[in-house]
């Protein structure tokens, strides 16, 4: 964790009067020193740069064209949809609208129910850089792993302005056995490009958050693509054999690392790892 933040060495000038050597124990911003009651110019600007990166991840629109092309060349049949949200401001204020498709999108999916084993979906969520940076290699790896299991794959559905539960409506229209939503997580100061994977058995409108499994913090400096793909593939296999996802599946699979697979929680400021935070964020008032 300590090495996640860019330019870490420059960021914390050693003027703390002796606690600098404790920095190796935590990614927290200790040992900043002080200038009067304030922070040094360097520390002030470094903080602003981290916040700017997080803000840009939230607000810079995701460019879908290169993703469609890349997924297409991997062999996926790609569908590009929008939710009922009209712009980013509405997305942030109205999570309910980010969980429903636009009318046109719904019409597009009607009549395409194929009853595939797995439908893969990706939504910008709260971080466009999470998707632009991680989606293509993750999709490629997952395609190989899932096809090796002789599973039938539905189209790869890309969603603009989507929340986690958008996968429920899509999964219902496509009559999927299992839905996987890859989505940009709420950016933190230390990492703005974390991708989360939410896996739901029989995704249908109104599915409960406790019936999903989540793998979080997928990014090069967090949970690397290769490991994430393996964990997702493993979950898919167990979800299909037990015909369930969520807390109940966790209970049957205690060998999973609890830090990387979580279920949603409802308590403000009581969430745990980045996984817990992201799932709380995405799942409140579903």
């Amino acid at each position: 964790m300590q090495d996640d933040r860019p330019d870490r060495g420059d960021q914390f000038p050693d003027e703390s009067g002796g606690l600098a050597h404790l920095r190796r124990f935590t990614p927290a911003r200790i040992g900043l020193g002080r200038v009067g009651s304030g922070q040094s110019t360097t520390a002030t600007l470094n903080f602003r740069a981290d916040h700017a990166r997080a803000r840009d991840a939230v607000h810079i629109p995701l460019d879908f064209a290169p993703l469609e092309e890349a997924l297409g060349s991997q062999g996926w049949s790609v569908v590009h949809l929008r939710t009922a949200v009209k712009d980013r401001s509405e997305y942030l204020r109205r999570p309910d609208l980010g969980r429903r498709l636009s009318q046109e999108a719904r019409a597009l999916l009607q009549g395409r129910a194929m009853g595939s084993d797995v439908v893969m979906m990706a939504a910008d969520g709260l971080s466009s850089s999470a998707i632009s940076g991680n989606l293509t290699p993750l999709a490629a790896r997952l395609r190989v792993l899932l096809l090796a299991r002789r599973l039938t794959l539905g189209p790869f559905v890309l969603v603009e302005q989507g929340r986690v539960a958008i996968g429920d409506e899509i999964g219902e229209l496509l009559n999927a056995r299992l839905g996987i939503v890859l989505i940009g997580e709420r950016p933190g100061l230390s990492a703005a490009d974390s991708l989360g994977a939410y896996i739901t058995w029989q995704p249908r409108i109104g599915a409960m958050d406790s019936h999903r499994n989540c793998i979080s913090n997928i990014r090069a400096a967090g949970l690397p693509i290769e490991d994430a793909a393996k964990q997702i593939d493993d979950l898919v296999s167990r979800a299909l054999s037990h015909a369930m996802t969520g807390i109940a599946l966790n209970d049957r699979c205690s060998r999973l690392a609890p830090a990387s697979v979580t279920n949603s929680e409802s308590s403000p400021k009581a969430s745990s790892s980045e996984a817990g935070t992201a799932s709380r964020e995405e799942n409140t008032s579903m």
Partner: peptide, 25 residues
């Protein structure tokens, strides 16, 4: 207050230890 206003577990920004000095001052 948290170090440098950055809560590295809950991933949000609270006040920095410095901000406490500011308000005392």
């Amino acid at each position: 207050a948290v170090p440098g206003a950055d809560d590295v577990m809950l991933n949000y920004q609270s006040l920095a230890f410095h901000d406490v000095l500011y308000v005392r001052e």
